[in-house]
């Protein structure tokens, strides 16, 4: 097995893998290009160039990689003729279909700060999750948003939704000052405020209806709420009765509510 002193190896393919190469193993290289152990300065590297294809060798070193790691690898290697023809095979090995959409996403992700890239790795974000970024003409627009997301307390699904609404609002010419969270660390309240900005008519309409429902004279142990369910909003009525007498009383009260809904056209038009 051929080895090379690390001093004779290049680190131009250093894609900042998240997991350090085990100290117990020698570094690996492809010819004089290091594949692993980028943090080492001394020792030798085992040259995998004679044992198989580049992609096979690389895959043997890294069983799993995140989208951000692959993006960094792609950004450092795509001009290299050794790699150029093999990205389809490489990405397929990590469960991704190499196409123009993925290539664009990799290019965008690789240009964003490492902290954001690592955040996408920790949240295991997919190409689809990051799709809104592809619509931003200026990468600078993504920087503040990225910083906010990295520091946020949002869950994965909340973060993906926040990313999409924030990008859309930026593209609708809302300034970052209007969009950014009111607290130092963004949480689910930020998501609510983004939703209100992105869907102003629905938000204000639903709020008015919620208030209207709350103002109605609900009989004892009954309640009504205005709930949004996708593309429609519904009046959700609940009651609890432990006797026929109480149940009848509640129904009489609900009939009064029905009459006031009808007369005043509070929730629905006639």
């Amino acid at each position: 097995m051929k080895t090379l002193p690390l001093s004779q190896c290049n680190k131009s393919w250093d894609f900042k893998p998240l997991v350090a190469w085990p100290r117990t193993l020698p570094a690996m290289s492809w010819g004089s290009e290091l594949l692993t152990g980028f943090d080492r300065d001394s020792g030798v590297a085992v040259d995998l160039a004679e044992t198989g294809s580049l992609v096979e060798g690389f895959r043997a070193c890294y069983a799993s990689l995140t989208l951000a790691e692959l993006s960094r690898l792609w950004s450092r290697t795509h001009p290299n003729p050794n790699w150029a023809e093999h990205f389809e095979e490489l990405f397929r090995g990590y469960g991704l279909r190499w196409n123009d959409e993925l290539r664009t996403t990799c290019a965008i992700l690789a240009e964003l700060p490492l902290a954001f890239q690592n955040w996408t790795s920790s949240k295991q974000l997919s190409v689809r999750d990051l799709a809104p970024l592809r619509a931003l003409a200026e990468r600078s627009q993504a920087l503040e948003l990225g910083t906010t997301l990295v520091a946020s307390k949002l869950s994965k699904s909340e973060a993906v939704q926040a990313l999409e609404w924030a990008v859309e609002l930026l593209l609708m010419d809302r300034s970052w000052e209007e969009i950014r969270p009111s607290t130092a660390i963004a949480d689910s309240r930020w998501l609510s405020s983004l939703k209100a900005l992105r869907f102003p008519q629905m938000t204000s309409g639903d709020r008015q209806q919620q208030q209207a429902v709350a103002r109605l004279a609900w009989p004892p142990r009954t309640s009504g709420h205005w709930l949004r369910q996708g593309d429609k909003a519904v009046l959700d009525v609940r009651l609890q009765a432990d006797s026929l007498e109480e149940f009848r009383g509640q129904l009489r009260g609900l009939q009064k509510i029905e009459a006031s809904l009808k007369d005043q056209e509070v929730l629905w038009k006639k």
């Binding site: 619509a135 609708m172 992105r198 629905m202 593309d231």
Partner: peptide, 27 residues
């Protein structure tokens, strides 16, 4: 969004997931 930005009435529409999975305006 990528092809037409958010100046289109379609991309900026307030749409919500309907029972059949499509995005539609409020009923």
């Amino acid at each position: 969004r990528e092809r037409f930005g958010m100046k289109s009435y379609v991309t900026q529409a307030e749409t919500f997931r309907s029972a059949d999975g499509k995005h539609r305006y409020d009923l």
